[in-house]
Amino acid sequence: MFKRSVVLLLAIVVLISLVAAAFWNPAAKRQARSGGVEKIAIIYVEGVIMGGRGTGDIFGESSGTDGIIKQLHKARDDAAVKAVVLRINSPGGSAPASQEVGTEIKKLRASGKIVVTSMGDVAASGGYWLAAVTDKIYANPATMTGSIGVYIPYANWEELYKKIGIYQEKIKSGAHKDILSPERQMTQEERAIIQGMVDDLYNQFVAVVAEGRHMDPAKVRQLADGRIYTGSQAKELGLIDEFGTMYDAIDGAAQLSGIKGKPEIKEYGRTTPWSMLFGAGDEVSLEKLFFRQVRHELPITAPLAMPEQW
């Protein structure tokens, strides 16, 4: 009888617990009172900015801009995320890829969320393109930034091909179908076509910076001769807003979005133990891009918004 009583008592405790859990949930009530936990999302932009899904392996995908865009969409769809800190550590990359991410950042801001940039070692060229479309830019005085400009790389390997005995013939549908082909000298007409493209992309870049930084386009053109600036120089020129670390940027984002108290941080694209263990590259390096280009995996005409050396 004693045993049964103990077990019945235990059953009653469990039953009361289940009922209590159903009708009384202080955590949920706290959350409801505060209107839910307010979060700041951190999205990392690291390495060369290049379109696509990046490289994948069995432990996950590494960063191409598709991954960054996916993270921006997640932040937009999460009602608890009030602001996003874009942590940029990138020398730039492809102009279209930078533009695509920049457009998505603008959409995120249009949805009512604050986007603040925190620059790491380097946020130049395409990296600066992204920063320019955010609400506020934080950088360290020694951060490398600027390099506003575009170039399209071209290599002429004609002599090398002759030396090693490679003669390539092409049957073309049009005169310029093999423009930028490395097997032959570029013609003057082709040079003018490419220069026209570069100028157009440069104008687009200047317009983005002028609009994002509320600067006169003529002044942007003065600064945008492709040179790199230190964070300190960039602040004097109005290319960044404040000196500060990523945590200063988080505080700034909290302030701009009206978050009271300490915000919850939500990191997107965190390094997993697997990628740490197996060294899965979470960024695209210029060496990898070079080899992809040699293997004809990249469009050879990808215009680059990045310094040639960094």
Partner: peptide, 19 residues
């Protein structure tokens, strides 16, 4: 494992940090 039910309820009584 049935004791997880009362454990969850007790945890709800605690401050968010200790839960």
């Amino acid at each position: 494992r049935i004791l997880i039910a009362p454990l969850v309820v007790l945890a709800m009584l605690l401050p968010a940090g200790a839960m």
